[in-house]
Design a protein around this nucleic acid. Structure first.
Lengths: 200, 200, 200, 200
DNA sequence: TATGAATGAGAGTTCATTCAT
DNA sequence: CATGAATGAACTCTCATTCAT
C-alpha cells in the first residue's frame, strides 16, 4: 500500500492470476523447473510483473501453498459442523480434507512441491505448526471419544499421528497416481481406522 | 584406463568420503543448496575430484540414496529371520527399519531430500517401485495372518498402505525432530497397529 | 512476453552490437578462444546479456555466419543482373563475391572460423548445401556457355568445382594475408579461367 | 634423452601408437571432442602416458599433422623422379599427392581438423610455409613449361595458386564425401588443367 | 503498472596438466 | 615407464533480482 498495487482490486486479480500460473508450473514441471520466467510465461505476463506483485519468489510460493492450506482448513471446519459424535467428526474431517484436495489437484501438487523443497526457516515452521495443530485437534477428538466411551484405550497422541500419517499417505499415493479412486480408498481407510479405534 | 576410478582401493575410499560429505550437506542444507562445490568443500577436496570419481552429480546422489536403501533392506531381511508368525514378522520388520535409520540419521535425512527432490525419470521410478514392493510384501504378510486366523478381516492392500504410511509418518516426525524417541514411539505405534489388525 | 527480445527495436541494436563483437573476437582470436565471456567483454556488456539476447551460443554464431552469407548472396544476385552472356555472368558473379567480402574482412574471417569449426549437425549441413548449390549454379552457367558455343568442351561439374575452389583459394589467401590485392588477383584469376574455358 | 623415453625405441613405438589414436579420434569426433582423455582411451593407455610422451597436447597434434605432411612430401618427390617434361611433372606431383592421401584417409581428416583449428603462432606458420613452398615449386614448374614453349602465357604465380586451390578443393570434397572417386575426379581435373595451361 | 533489458552469481561439467607412487 | 588421482581454470547456461522507461 502506498506504493504499488498491493491491496488494490486489480492488483489482487493479477496476483491470483500469477499464483494460479505458479501452481500449474509447479505441478507440471516440478519445483526445480519453476523459475519466475516460466511462471510469468505461463501467466502470459512479463517477468517483471511477478517481481512487482510479489516481494520475492519465495513469497509467491509461500502464498500459493498457504492459501490452499487455509482454504482447506475452512472447508474442513465447515464440514465438521453438524457432526456430533467424535467418530462422526473424525470421519467428517478426514473426508472433507480428501474431498477438498480432490477438487484442487493442481494446487495440491504445487503445495506438495513447495513443502518438500522449501527449506526456508520461517516457512517450514508455518507448516510444522499447522500440522502440529492438526494432530492436536485429532488427539483431542480421540480423547473425547475415549471419555465418552466410544473409543477404546490407546495413546491418543500416537494414534493421532498415525491417523494423520495414513491420510497423508493416501494423498501421496493420489499425487503420484491420478487414477487412484480417492473416495473409495478414503472410505476403506476410514472403515479400518474406525474399527481400529473402536470397541468391537 | 576406463573412466573414473571405479574398482581401485584408493578410489573407493575417496568415493565413500565424498558420499559421506554429500549426505552431510544434504542433511544440513537441503537439496537445493547441495551443489557439487559445496559437497567438495565439505569433503575437503576440490570440485574436480567429485567429477573425477562420479560420472555426474546425479549419479553421486543416486549412490548416496540407494546404498542406504540397500543396507536398510538387508538389515530388515536379517531381522525378520527368526520371526515366525505374521504378527512377529510385522513387528520385526518395522522395528528393524526404524532401528536401522535411527543409527544413520544424517544419511536418512539425505536420502529423504534426494527422494523428495530428484525429479529424474529413471530415478524417481526406482523408489516408486521399491515402495510398491514394500507395500506388497506387507499386504502378503497381512493376508497370511488373516489366513491363519491371527488377523481379523479387512482390506489387506489398504491396510498395508496405511501401515507403511504410519511408519513413514513416524520417520518424518523424527526427521524434523531429532529429540523424538523413535524406539518408544515405535513401540506405541506397533501396539496400536497390532490391536488394529488383531481379533480382540 | 515470449523469449528474449526478438522483435523490439532496442533489442535489435543490441543484438547487432553483440554479433559485431562476436565477429571481431572470432576473427582476432579464433573459434576456440571465442567464448561467450570474451564476446560479452568485447561488446562491453555482461555475459548474461549475450544469453539474454540469443538462445544459445550456437545460435549467435549461426546468425553471424548466415547473415553474411545471405548478404553476400544478395550482392551477387544484384551484380549478375545486367550481365547477359555466360562469360559475363561468370565474371560478374565471382567478382561480386570477392568484392563483397573485401569490404567485410572481419565478418569474413569470422564466418570462415565458424564454418570450419562448427561441427553441429544441422548447421554444417546448411553450408554444405549452400556450397553445393553454388557449384550447381556454376555448372549450369558453364553448360549454357557450351551450348551457346562460347565455351569449349569439358566436364562442367568438375570445372565448376575447380572454379569454386580457385575462388575460395583466393579468399583463403586473402584471409591469411590482408595485404593481398584481392582485386588484382581476382582479375588475373578470371583472365586465366576465362581462357581456360573458352575456345582460343 | 636424459629424462624419459624420448628417443628410445620403445618410446617411439608408444608415441606412434598415441599419434595413431589421436588421428582416429580427430577424424571421427572432430577437433573439439579430441581431448587427451579420449585419445588415451582410444590408444588403450592411461591419460598420463600421453602427457609423459608428449610435452603437451599441442605438440602431439603438431606431430600428427607434420608427420603426414612430410611423408606426403617425400612421396611426391619420389613420384616426380622419372617425369621429365614440366607437364608430366605437374601431373605426377598432383596425382601423387591425391593418391597418397587416398591411402591415408583418417590421417588426412585428422590433419585437416588440426590445420583448421590450431591457431598457434608457430604452428600455423609452419603450414603456411609449406604451402608457400608448394606454390612456388608449382610456379617454377609452370615457368619452366612456358620457357620450353610447352605452356602458353599466363601469370605463373596466380596459376600456381589456382592449381593448388583446385587440388585442395578436390581433397576437401573427398574429405566430406568418402564415396567420391578421387582417381577419376583427379584425372578430369588434370585434363582440364592441362588444356588450360597448354597451347591448343 | 508493466515491460524489456541488464546484471552477476552460481550451477554442472570438461579438460590439460601436474604429481606421487 | 605407467598409472590413477587431483587440481583449478574455463566453459555454457540458468536464474532471481533490479531498474530505466
Amino acid at each position: 500500500m502506498g506504493r504499488g498495487s498491493r491491496g488494490t482490486v486489480g492488483g489482487r486479480a493479477r496476483r491470483e492470476q500469477i499464483e494460479r500460473a505458479a501452481a500449474e508450473v509447479l505441478a507440471e514441471m516440478g519445483y526445480a523447473a519453476s523459475s519466475v520466467g516460466r511462471i510469468a510465461e505461463r501467466a502470459g505476463v512479463s517477468k517483471g510483473v511477478v517481481t512487482y506483485h510479489f516481494p520475492s519468489k519465495d513469497e509467491l510460493l509461500r502464498r500459493v501453498a498457504l492459501r490452499l492450506f487455509q482454504e482447506c482448513s475452512a472447508h474442513i471446519a465447515a464440514s465438521i459442523t453438524g457432526a456430533t459424535t467424535p467418530a462422526e467428526r473424525l470421519r467428517a474431517g478426514i473426508s472433507a480434507e480428501l474431498e477438498f484436495f480432490s477438487t484442487r489437484r493442481i494446487e495440491f501438487l504445487a503445495m506438495a512441491e513447495i513443502m518438500a523443497n522449501h527449506r526456508d526457516a520461517s516457512f517450514g515452521h508455518a507448516f510444522d505448526e499447522v500440522s502440529t495443530s492438526e494432530t492436536e485437534t485429532l488427539a483431542d477428538l480421540l480423547a473425547e471419544g475415549q471419555a465418552q466411551g466410544d473409543f477404546r484405550a490407546f495413546d491418543v497422541h500416537e494414534a493421532a499421528h498415525m491417523i494423520a500419517a495414513a491420510k497423508n499417505g493416501l494423498l501421496d499415493r493420489w499425487a503420484s497416481d491420478e487414477s487412484l479412486d480417492l473416495a473409495s480408498a478414503s472410505t476403506k481407510m476410514l472403515d479400518f481406522l474406525e474399527s481400529a479405534v473402536s470397541h468391537r
